[in-house]
Structures are given as C-alpha cells and as structure tokens.
Amino acid sequence: MRRKIAFVAALMLIAFTGLQFIRPKIKNPPVTADIQAPSNVEAILRRACYDCHSNETNLRWYDKIQPVYWQVAAHVNEGREGLNFSDWKNMAPAEQKAKLWESINQVIAGAMPVQNYVMVHPSAKLSKDDLVILKAYVSGMTPVNKPGDTAKINAQMQQLEQWQNAKFTIGKLPIALNGISYMPDYKNWQAISTTNRFDNGTLRVIFGNNIAVNAMKANNIHPWPNGTIFAKVAWDQVEDNEGNIKTGAFKQIEYMIKDDQKYASTMGWGFARFKTTKLIPYGKTALFATECVNCHRPQKDEDFVFTQPIKN
C-alpha cells in the first residue's frame, strides 16, 4: 500500500516537474510609447494595472509555477490586448480619453483589477483614496463646450440640409461584419432613456423596439426577452450662452439585439455600430464585438445593459 502511494506521488512529481517546461510565452517588448501621467496617478497604474496592461509585467516567483503560470500568461496577453499603457501614445487622443473613462468605470464596477489576481497580489487592490485620485485625473479630461461653437454648428447645418434634401435616403442597408444590419425603423420606436455623456461631449437617446417596451411594462427585463432591440443614437453637444445643450451633428448609431442562442458567444446580445450619416459599419473584423463585450461585462447583473429604462 505504502509503495503504491509513493509510486503515485512520484508520478505526480514527475508530471508537475514536466509541466514546468511547458510554458506559454510572456514577452516584454520595449516600452516606446508609455503613458505620461502625474506621478501619483502613474504610481497607482504601475502598482495595480501594469502587470497585465503594460510591457513591464513583473512576475513574482509564485506566478511562474505551473499550472498557475498558464492563467497568468492568459491574463497578461488578454490584458495587453484590451489596454496597453506601454503603447499609449500610439492611440489617438480621443481614443486615449475614451479608454481612461472606460477603465475608471471598470474599476468602479469592480471588474478591474480582476478579483482572483488581487487575491494573489494584494498590492494591486485599489483603495478609496486611489479611486479619488484616478477619478480626479480622468475628470480633468472632461471636454469643455465652447458656447456657440461655429465649427460644430456648421457640421450640424450641413447634415440638416442633406436631411431636408432627402439625401439620407439609403438604398442598400449597411451591414456590420457580424451580419447585423442598420435598421432605419428605430425612429418609430420609443425613447427609453437619454444620456448626457459629458465624458465625451455627446448627447444620446436610447430607443427600444416594441418587444423591449412591452417587456418593460411587464417588468420582464431580467433578462430582456429574445427579440429585444435597443438603438442608441449619439450626437455632438452644441451649447449656447444660456446653458442649453442641444444635439449637433449625428455621430453614430449603435444597436443591441437580444438572442441568447444566436449571440451566445457575445453574452446573448448582438452588437453593431454605424458611424457618421454615411452609416459606416464599425470594426475591422467580425471580432469587433469583443470590444463591446469587454465594456459591457461589468453590467452582467443587469443583463449587460447600461441603460436604466424609463417607463412612460
């Protein structure tokens, strides 16, 4: 009996040792475009984010032991793909700002830093004070509307003229790379909310189709039923001297279509975005929806929906 146990233990030791030689690669490419932030912000980013979101991954000895190392490598590679502070300056300024607002929202929602990572690396935990510093830093990037901004007004007037001359009439409906088509009928749906996105200087209206509106009436939105469609339209903000913020040029329309079978791989929702009045489908490959999924993931308790709908 004792010999049997010793034999099994020996086998396991061999397997464990063997595992150590099967290693996915975590490269640390040179840092060429690192984020420049105030020192207190940078200290927090380095401590809580850089292991997975930069090329300066600092692995502890216990991270390097298999099979843990597999998970660590997956975290780092996925993390860098979503956000890499070492590549920061390669992004356009608007994209950088959007990333920062998205990141702080992931932190507030408790989605970041990843919980099981924090359990092993307690130093990555963000305190309330850290959050205050990060919020202040990001808030400092809030765009300020120039009252009577002529460039914005001209862009709006140009679109209005096209609209009046029926130049928006669309022949073939644009289709996103995941097969979702632009749906012009959203204009006949009900508004279920509106948002003033001061983080990126837009106003938005969220429309819901009949299935969505009926689900709201029946308090049946957790989860939303299949067939639910939301359309979210975003416009530039145009401000006047009286503090009125109105919609300027049309920027984009986004859809979420509920079908828990068809869109099982993207949390049960089909995502699409069409930009400008030309309604250009967003995304370079069909995988563009990963971006949508990553941002919506913290809303998993709300069926991945940000909007709190308003009944009328």
């Binding site: 809303q299 940000f306 709190q308």
Partner: peptide
C-alpha cells in the same frame, strides 16, 4: 416636451441621466 431633473448615471461615471 418631457423634462426631468438630471442625476449622475449610477452605471457610468462620466454621464448624467434623467
């Protein structure tokens, strides 16, 4: 014309909603 007071969006730091 439907008018609401604004509140901070509880789901998105950076937005206000009705």
């Amino acid at each position: 014309l439907v008018t609401w007071g604004q509140q901070d969006d509880p789901s998105w730091f950076g937005a206000r909603i009705p």
